[in-house]
Simulated assay, not measured.
Amino acid sequence: MHMADALVSAATGGAMWAASAGAATYSVKKVQTEIEENEKKIPLMGVMGAFVFASQMINFTIPGTGSSGHIGGGILLAALLGPHAGFLTLISILAIQALFFADGGLLALGCNIFNMGFFTCYVAYPLIYKKIIHKKMSKKNILIGSLIAAVVGLQLGSFAVVLETFFSGKTELPFGTFVIMMQPIHLAIGIVEGLLTAAVISFLWNTRPELLESSNLDKINNSNNKKVVALLLCAALVIGGIASWYASNNPDGLEWSIEKTIDSNEVEGNSSIHELLRSVQDKISFLPDYNFKSDQEAQTQAKLGTSLSGISGSILTLIVAALIGKISKKYRQIKAKINN
């Protein structure tokens, strides 16, 4: 559900950048305290970022629709890292995707952060998932909480996409028709994401239950912590480097909805700001659409580009997400020294 720049106006894109920046600022302040209390969250932010980045590369087919979807990862990140660190980790994923892989526009980055991160980490997680799980931690409750939270988060995010195109004046995407296309397909995607999220959380609950609550991270000794980090990193590299070969080639839910609405998956954005950001993105992205820039049709070449994208993107995300944690901790230490 990564929006392209052509779907938003400069005004709407700027407003959503401001909204996402405000939410990020709030998250940073909260994470500073959390990391000061437990530094083990920093490497976990990195490897979970890498894991979700890699997982987002695998589009799964929605049977009978000709569409596909991928996990957003917001509920999974919030469940393992807490909403604040989860939100910041998702920002690092989306920023790397836009900058280096041309997945989602630069103008639309604020929209994508808000749609995929805010609604999951700050709405669906605390109001649905957390309330269900806190009644009793069990496989049943993990499944119910993950399923409902993923569906609600994705429904809110997909409806936000429609609103953002409406306020951007995209008359070629009529509000009513676009809603009718967007909501049902993202309901199906949300159900699959909920099931996948529940499977991952249930596995970690069986093997490392202390990971499911950030306040329990201090119970992990250094040896176990390294094992957890190594396991998640290996999983990210295998998913991004090999499993990503088998991703569905069908258009994702957003592309499919646009195509069904206007009989084309292309929406034009020809303003000067669109042209400028398109040029910047073309220069920065070294593996656009997770493949080489050259038009190589050979299957082995395509697989190599996908593998390189999955591995390099996972490593970049790991570094950026961990740096966010490190910088947040350092900033709080400097601030404390100044105040003293």
Rank of each mutant, 00 (worst) to 15 (best):
A4M: 08
G13F: 07
G14S: 10
A18D: 10
A21D: 05
E36Y: 09
E37V: 09
N38Q: 15
L44K: 14
F53A: 08
I62D: 02
G66A: 11
L80N: 04
T89D: 09
G105R: 06
A108S: 15
F118C: 05
Y122M: 04
K135F: 12
M137K: 15
F159I: 12
L163N: 02
F166T: 12
S168M: 05
I180L: 15
Q183D: 05
I185W: 03
H186D: 03
A188P: 00
E193W: 04
E193T: 07
L195I: 15
L196H: 06
F203C: 11
N206K: 15
T207H: 14
L211H: 02
S214G: 15
L217W: 01
N224Q: 15
N224V: 13
K226L: 13
V228T: 10
L233E: 05
S248M: 04
L254I: 11
S257F: 07
T261N: 08
S264P: 09
S271G: 12
I273C: 01
S285V: 09
P288E: 08
G305V: 04
T306R: 15
L308H: 05
S314K: 01
A322V: 03
I327N: 03
I327Q: 06
R332F: 10
Q333T: 13
Q333W: 01
Q333M: 09
K335V: 05
